[in-house]
Simulated scan of single mutants.
Amino acid sequence: MIRATEVVSGPQQATADDTITLDETARHRRRMAMVSDNGIAFMLDLPEAVLLRQGDRLALEDGRFVEVLAKPEPLLAVAGHDARHLLVLSWHIGNRHLAAEIAADRILIRRDPVIAEMLAGLGASLEEVEAPFHPEGGAYAGSHGGHEAHGSAGHHHGHDDATQSDALVDDHGHSHTHGHGHR
């Protein structure tokens, strides 16, 4: 099977020979068999997992390029009464480790009735939308929100000069280790 071993982005992109339309989850990959929108079968075989962005080109071994298109997904647009309220809402979303696309006037998240109920209870304005999803990258991963850590038993939030740590389980089921710098 032909392989795609490189992602080309930026102004020097080659002309695409085909496209592949993927939702956000399918765009975060390292190695996977794929079929382009017009039937080119290939193996995505990258050195590390990356989040493929709208417009990126996958370079196939035979010299062809497949352009990545972001598939619209069912999302929830979250808005606040003002900037401070939107910050409070974003804190609650982040506290639950949800993937989020952040704009000046709204936050896009995947639809989830439990989260929607929580946000409505906090006074958020909510609108169901269909749109490509481009969540923010995270502090623990170069290209994508730290999802790699969630596949393990937990993740570490280190603090400088920590000599003692306490393991905690938060209200959404993730284990965290927090160093508290006790001496």
Score class of each variant (00 low, 15 high):
170 D>L: 14
44 L>R: 00
155 H>F: 15
30 R>M: 14
50 V>F: 01
138 G>S: 05
74 P>V: 06
135 P>A: 05
73 E>F: 02
150 H>K: 12
37 D>M: 11
33 A>W: 09
140 Y>F: 15
78 V>N: 02
164 Q>G: 11
62 D>N: 05
27 R>E: 02
1 M>L: 12
65 F>Y: 13
144 H>Q: 10
176 H>G: 07
165 S>M: 15
53 R>F: 01
19 T>F: 03
156 H>A: 14
122 L>A: 13
40 I>T: 07
176 H>S: 06
29 R>T: 07
85 H>W: 08
122 L>P: 10
103 A>Y: 06
171 D>H: 06
67 E>M: 12
136 E>H: 09
108 L>C: 07
74 P>M: 07
5 T>Q: 09
152 S>G: 06
77 A>V: 09
50 V>N: 01
95 N>H: 10
34 M>S: 09
44 L>M: 02
167 A>L: 15
76 L>F: 03
180 H>D: 11
144 H>K: 05
156 H>Y: 15
176 H>V: 14
77 A>E: 11
27 R>C: 02
95 N>I: 05
39 G>Q: 02
166 D>K: 14
117 E>M: 07
64 R>V: 03
69 L>D: 09
74 P>L: 12
43 M>D: 10
2 I>N: 13
29 R>I: 12
128 E>H: 07
93 I>A: 00
109 I>D: 00
149 A>W: 02
77 A>N: 08
144 H>N: 12
90 S>H: 11
40 I>D: 03
41 A>I: 10
83 A>E: 06
163 T>G: 11
126 L>A: 06
177 T>G: 11
104 A>K: 12
132 P>A: 10
48 E>V: 08
143 S>H: 15
58 L>Y: 04
14 A>K: 00
43 M>K: 07
101 E>I: 02
91 W>F: 14
41 A>E: 15
14 A>Q: 01
77 A>R: 12
166 D>M: 15
80 G>T: 12
83 A>T: 04
72 P>L: 14
181 G>Q: 00
13 Q>L: 13
145 G>N: 04
20 I>M: 05
75 L>Y: 04
39 G>V: 01
98 L>V: 01
2 I>D: 13
41 A>R: 15
8 V>Y: 06
146 G>V: 03
97 H>F: 13
95 N>D: 08
148 E>W: 08
144 H>D: 12
27 R>Q: 03
137 G>W: 08
39 G>Y: 02
88 V>K: 03
143 S>D: 15
81 H>G: 05
123 G>W: 08
76 L>W: 03
137 G>Y: 09
74 P>R: 10
110 R>W: 01
162 A>P: 04
2 I>Q: 14
29 R>Y: 09
11 P>M: 04
27 R>P: 01
169 V>F: 11
123 G>S: 10
142 G>F: 15
116 A>P: 13
28 H>C: 13
108 L>V: 05
139 A>K: 09
46 L>S: 04
84 R>F: 11
181 G>H: 00
158 G>D: 13
117 E>R: 15
168 L>E: 06
173 G>W: 01
83 A>G: 03
71 K>S: 10
137 G>T: 14
173 G>A: 02
85 H>Q: 09
33 A>G: 09
66 V>T: 15
180 H>E: 07
98 L>D: 00
115 I>C: 01
34 M>K: 14
114 V>P: 03
102 I>E: 00
7 V>F: 05
42 F>I: 00
126 L>K: 07
